[in-house]
Design a protein around this nucleic acid. Structure first.
Length: 203
DNA sequence: TACCGGATATACT
DNA sequence: GTATATCCGGTAG
C-alpha cells in the first residue's frame, strides 16, 4: 500500500487538509495495529490565524512542537484528552492540520476496548486519539511513516464540504473561516446530524 | 494560585 | 435536540 508523500505537506496547508480526507491513518502501538479513514480535518494557519496555538508567533513549551518541519505531528492535551495535528510547511510557518474524525477500519474491536464503549468511537479529536492509541507523552513531535504512525492511500470522498471550525467561539474574526473539511454525509464527524449519505459519502 | 483551553458524556427540556 | 459538569495540564499572574 502506498504511503503518503510527506513532501505534499510542504506547501499549502488548506490544500493539504483537503488532500488528507479519505486517506488511511494507521497506528502500530505495542504491536497492535488499528486504522481508520480520515473523515474530518481542520486547518490552522499559524501566526495569522487567531484560532491557532501559534497566533502572532507565540511560542512556548506547550506549542514548541509546532515549530517543526512538515511531516511531524503535534499532540496537545486538554481535559485529559489528546488531540493530534499533522504539521505542514517549513518550521518558519507553524501551521498544521487537526485530525477531528476517522472511520474505523482495522481493529475496531480494539478501539471499543480502549474506549470502553461501542458507539461514537472516533467522531471527535479526543475520541479518535484514544481509539488508535495516540498519546502526547509518547507521540508528540514524532515523524510520520516511521513504523508507528503511517498515513497511506485509502478511499476517495464523493464530495468534500467546507465549514467553519468548531469550538473557537472566542476567536473573533477567525470563527467564520471555512477551514474545516469533512467527507460530506459521513457520520464519523463531530456533531453529525441527519442521515448518512450513500456509501457513507465515499466514492 | 487562578484560569484557560475546548471535548466528552450525561442529564435534561 | 440543548445545557452543563467534569476532566488535566500548562501557562500567566
Amino acid at each position: 500500500m502506498e504511503t503518503l508523500d510527506i513532501n505534499s505537506l510542504a506547501d499549502d496547508t488548506l490544500e493539504s487538509a483537503r488532500g488528507l480526507l479519505g486517506l488511511e491513518l494507521v497506528t502500530c502501538i505495542d504491536g497492535i495495529v488499528t486504522s481508520g479513514f480520515i473523515t474530518e480535518v481542520e486547518a490552522y494557519l499559524g501566526i495569522d490565524d487567531r484560532a491557532a496555538h501559534t497566533f502572532g508567533g507565540k511560542r512556548n513549551k506547550k506549542n514548541e512542537m509546532m515549530f517543526n518541519d512538515y511531516g511531524h505531528i503535534y499532540v496537545y492535551t486538554m481535559h485529559g484528552h489528546h488531540c493530534m495535528n499533522i504539521l505542514t510547511r517549513e518550521k518558519e510557518h507553524p501551521e498544521g492540520i487537526l485530525i477531528r474524525g476517522i472511520e474505523p477500519h482495522i481493529g475496531k474491536d480494539i478501539m471499543i476496548e480502549r474506549r470502553g464503549r461501542e458507539t461514537g468511537l472516533t467522531d471527535g479529536p479526543g475520541k479518535l486519539t484514544k481509539s488508535i492509541g495516540i498519546r502526547r507523552e509518547l507521540h508528540n513531535g514524532m515523524e510520520l511513516n516511521n513504523g508507528i504512525l503511517t498515513i497511506r492511500a485509502g478511499r476517495t470522498p464523493a464530495e468534500i464540504e467546507a465549514t467553519p471550525r468548531i469550538g473557537i467561539d472566542n476567536k473573533k474574526e477567525a470563527v467564520a473561516y471555512p477551514y474545516r473539511f469533512i467527507v460530506k454525509g459521513n457520520p464519523n464527524v463531530s456533531k453529525f446530524k441527519g442521515r448518512p449519505a450513500e456509501n457513507n459519502g465515499w466514492q
